[in-house]
Design a binder for these strands. Structure first.
Length: 961
DNA sequence: TTTCAAGGCCAC
DNA sequence: GTGGCCTTGAAA
């Protein structure tokens, strides 16, 4: 659990008087453990004093102790990691600005601040209105005289907090690990020591003994003249540079593939995996995936290594590694990070441009094959950029790896430096030093020695290679030191970060798992083929202008082609004064360069396609070509009604979108079925970067009218998506229930684990929701913050109703009619017995039924009522998942946004269609289901008040599947 | 030999 | 800075 959680979790229990006899049982347990039986219930301070002596279970300690241990106060604080990957990714929010009501509802979902210099404070050491907050300045304790139950709960919470601190320490260690892997990668795996001379390469020892064939470090001479120094792996026996690069790429691909799953699943795990495998790209990506800059994770877009990593991460192992990498493509791949800082959306290039002045000697300039152009903005070898610490004898990382590593570390360090002295941080950045408010890349020497070396020299690097180069106009402190809100939505993050090509993926993502809905895509294919035969002007995928061909991976006009080329060549930095979502059309494309470039990346333009050596003519190598979304065979725009992007059958995205668009226009049930029937999920599994488009298209297709009623096929498939993302049993039950019931073990740790489990499962569920990308992460955060307890009650009740024993109570009256009251009371009694047994087991002492009824009787009745209701109506899983979404999107405070309403109505309509179709004889079923939601909320409110959120799980404890 | 996607040029 | 047009040259 700890390893899988990539977030700080704090669970605190209430310190408000609960007067729960059950809690007194916990109290007894705690008192027994603390050996302060007599004083506990009467003297909070004494308890506190005593508790402070217990390092294991921190109680409501003295003020000093409270400050140190973050003694709890009401509320369950949950940290929610933003989408990974994703891309994860999405926007994120901190809870510092949230209204106190969030806390009052008992749960906070907050963003992890991995790079917080004061993580302890960040996770909530302060008190505000008796609530743990992240406000570092508030340290006043809450009520000085806690109730007995508060003592216990506070102790539990303190233990939880201590555990959270431990975890955060672990995270900090991981952050170190996440940083160090890059170094490790550089030093061990991907950067074997360079030979003093190329001729010595064959005799060099392998740096990665586990790899076969042994790889050695050498300098490959580029085919350009003068030869640029290039570093890559070569088999010791290799003499041909092409085979050398082949094997390097294959090796690299295999390494990347090996870390793919870890990357996609967990950033922390990815770091470890990256460390283990030595893949710097994955490591850098993982750093970005798990690290924060003042709580904001940068989104890394572009870059060969990242693309490769992402491809591997998606499991797209079919994505061929570059067969042969001409020297042109083995050099540093540009990587750009786009994000928001201080309200300014801007970007950072992983490697700065270096203006080469009279670069007659590549060995001296380090700019490799730079033509002898005077004052041509040019980017340096990544090794040059990244490693001013690299000496002639020290190894250098692989270019792309270093590039991404530098980008990651730059941002991370900037994040750390936010509000402090950014310049001082930058001064420690490899290859950078602040000069007069600007940054200047230090001249470095990464000469590998010998006549073939001399790579990496910074040359005469000036402050700006372009008119808006990285280090000239940017006030990094202002940009990065602000109270960062969030990056663009995860949708763009995924698209940008992954920048996948999916060339080898299925040409047509079939809707159904069994491929039953292939006809529509095939027809669309033929339609496009026919359209292709007709001479129609191509349309730019960026601005809809007339396209002139395939440029840098997609079909664009000359304007966007030139724009992209100039941007990459000159490392231009753009900012968007708006929200980063400016519309890019032919008429407006010049209004916002940031959004234009962002769209370029998002649509699939390949940074690496811009040749760093500026060699004209010819075609790019397979390495770059493999990154293209569209292949050489240009496709004309389809006939009327088909969108511009949907013209290339070699473009997975385009084809998928064509499918969806065509079907949308057909507007029949089968097409809708194809739209939703597993397409999203399957695409998510095979090519996550496409999901955004699919979702958008799907939403456009299905939500054009809020009152739209879905076909039953579409409904079923939409519900199926919900079911697929709902790990019902995992959410509704607890693992290791036997351990929980074992009273000898640490109860506080158990309860903390329950809290962890709730947080983790709900967050993971949220991330899997089909509409996750439609909403900013802060919205999800707010939803979970306000709705977690309702979701918990709904889930556990539904699970018990669906999977629990269908109890047949002796509940018929004298007329033989079913006596629901009797059934209800018997069920309540049964549940109370379960609770009695469980709690007795947990506490290690018997609990009277009176105690139990007094403390949790009403709550159990409420939950039981919901459960019985579900059971009576024979709730279906399909209905449950819809209700779950509906109840989460139901805003009680009237703050419902149109987006939430749209999604909610979507699934309400979905539920309606499903119910009407499945239960035609129950015309009131939908109404009955929806009218039960207040009862769920009522039960959840009691659960929240009691803070005994483990009760529903205990009630499910007897269910064994 | 043809294709076509690179970069370059230069008027705007 | 933009974008239309041209040149180039590797791949087909």
């Amino acid at each position: 659990m700890t390893q899988t959680l990539d977030k700080t979790r704090i669970m605190t229990l209430t310190s408000t008087p609960c007067d729960l006899s059950t809690m007194s049982l916990f109290q007894d347990l705690k008192l027994k453990r603390r050996k302060i039986d007599s004083r506990c219930s009467s003297d909070g301070e004494s308890i506190a004093d005593t508790s402070t002596s217990s390092p294991d279970v921190a109680g409501p300690a003295s003020p000093s102790s409270r400050m140190d241990r973050s003694v709890p106060s009401p509320g369950l604080i949950i940290s929610m990691d933003r989408m990974a990957s994703s891309p994860e990714c999405g926007s994120m929010t901190t809870d510092s600005g949230q209204d106190p009501n969030d806390v009052g509802e008992g749960v906070k979902v907050k963003e992890e601040m991995l790079d917080d210099p004061q993580p302890k404070d960040a996770i909530g050491t302060g008190y505000e209105n008796g609530t743990v907050t992240a406000d570092n300045n508030k340290t006043e304790p809450p009520s000085p005289s806690p109730s007995p139950s508060a003592v216990v709960t506070a102790a539990l919470a303190a233990a939880a907090t201590a555990a959270a601190q431990q975890e955060q320490q672990q995270q900090r260690r991981e952050s170190v690990v996440m940083t160090s892997p890059l170094s490790c990668v550089v030093k061990s795996a991907t950067t074997p020591p360079p030979p003093s001379h190329p001729s010595q390469s064959s005799s060099s020892s392998s740096s990665t003994s586990s790899l076969s064939p042994p790889l050695t470090w050498t300098t490959v001479t580029a085919q350009t003249n003068p030869p640029p120094p290039l570093r890559c792996y070569t088999p010791s026996s290799a003499t041909d540079s092409m085979s050398v690069t082949q094997q390097y790429q294959q090796r690299r691909q295999s390494v990347v593939t090996s870390v793919s799953s870890a990357f996609w699943n967990s950033g922390a795990q990815t770091s470890a995996a990256s460390t283990a495998t030595g893949n710097a790209s994955a490591a850098a990506a993982s750093v970005l995936s798990v690290c924060r800059i003042n709580g904001v994770r940068p989104e890394l877009i572009g870059g060969a290594g990242f693309a490769t990593t992402a491809a591997a991460a998606t499991g797209n192992t079919d994505m061929k590694p570059p067969a042969a990498i001409p020297p042109r493509t083995t050099r540093s791949a540009p990587t750009v990070i786009m994000g928001e800082a201080g309200g300014v959306r801007t970007m950072i290039w992983s490697s700065p441009p270096c203006t080469v002045e009279q670069s007659t000697s590549p060995a001296s300039t380090g700019c490799g094959s730079v033509p002898s152009t005077v004052s041509t903005p040019y980017w340096s070898n990544a090794a040059t950029w990244s490693s001013n610490t690299s000496s002639a004898s020290s190894p250098s990382p692989s270019p792309s790896a270093v590039s991404e590593e530098s980008a990651a570390h730059l941002l991370l360090n900037l994040g750390v430096a936010a509000g402090h002295d950014v310049a001082s941080v930058i001064s420690h950045m490899p290859g950078l030093r602040p000069i007069g408010g600007q940054l200047q890349q230090q001249q470095t020497s990464v000469a590998s020695g010998g006549n073939g070396g001399g790579g990496g020299g910074g040359g005469n690097v000036t402050g700006g290679g372009g008119q808006q180069s990285f280090h000239v106009p940017l006030n990094m402190e202002r940009l990065w030191a602000g109270d960062l809100s969030q990056l663009p939505v995860a949708a763009t993050h995924q698209m940008h970060a992954l920048n996948l090509t999916a060339n080898t993926g299925p040409e047509w993502p079939m809707a159904g798992s069994n491929g039953e809905n292939k006809s529509a895509p095939v027809n669309a294919y033929h339609q496009m083929e026919e359209a292709d035969e007709q001479e129609q002007p191509m349309v730019c995928m960026i601005c809809d202008d007339r396209a002139t061909g395939l440029h840098y991976g997609i079909i664009t006009c000359e304007g966007c082609k030139g724009f992209f080329k100039r941007t990459v060549q000159n490392r231009r930095i753009y900012t968007c004064i708006a929200e980063g979502t400016c519309e890019i059309t032919k008429a407006q494309r010049n209004r916002c360069q940031y959004c234009r470039f962002k769209k370029c990346i998002g649509q699939g333009m390949v940074l690496q396609a811009v040749r760093e050596d500026r060699m004209p003519g010819g075609r790019n190598s397979g390495a770059v070509y493999n990154l293209y979304k569209v292949k050489y065979k240009k496709k004309r725009p389809p006939k009327n009604g088909q969108v511009k992007m949907e013209k290339s059958v070699t473009c997975t995205t385009a084809s998928t979108m064509t499918t969806m668009k065509t079907e949308n226009q057909d507007n029949n049930s089968s097409s809708m079925s194809t739209l939703v029937n597993g397409t999203i999920l399957k695409t998510a599994l095979t090519n996550p970067s496409e999901v955004v488009y699919l979702r958008q298209r799907l939403d456009n297709a299905v939500s054009s009218s809020r009152d739209r009623t879905f076909s039953i096929e579409a409904t079923i498939n939409m519900i199926k998506n919900l079911v697929d993302c709902d790990e019902f049993q995992d959410i509704a039950t607890l693992r290791n229930m036997e351990d929980l019931l074992e009273h000898n073990s640490d109860l506080s740790a158990k309860l903390m684990q329950i809290g962890d489990s709730i947080v983790y499962k709900l967050v993971q569920w949220t991330k899997r929701l089909p509409f996750y990308l439609e909403l900013p992460v802060e919205v999800h955060t707010r939803l979970l913050t306000h709705k977690w307890h309702e979701l918990l009650v709904l889930t556990t009740s539904a699970y018990q109703a669906i999977h629990g024993p269908q109890k047949i109570w002796n509940s018929t009256n004298i007329n033989g009619d079913r006596n629901e009251d009797s059934e209800f009371h018997q069920e309540v009694s049964h549940n109370l017995c379960i609770l009695q047994n469980c709690l007795s087991s947990m506490m290690g002492k018997p609990i009277t039924m009176d105690q139990l009824r007094q403390d949790v009787g009403v709550m159990v009745e409420k939950i039981t009522h919901v459960t019985l209701m579900f059971r009576r109506v024979k709730l279906r899983m399909e209905e449950y998942v819809c209700l779950k979404v509906i109840i989460m999107l139901t805003q009680n405070n009237g703050n419902t946004t149109s987006e939430l309403e749209t999604i909610q109505e979507r699934y309400t309509s979905c539920l309606k269609t499903y119910v009407e179709h499945t239960f035609p004889m129950q015309p009131n079923r939908l109404q009955d289901l929806l009218h039960r939601l207040p009862e769920i909320q009522s039960a959840a409110s009691l659960l929240l008040e009691s803070k005994m959120f483990y009760v529903p799980f205990l009630l499910n404890s007897t269910i064994r599947s």
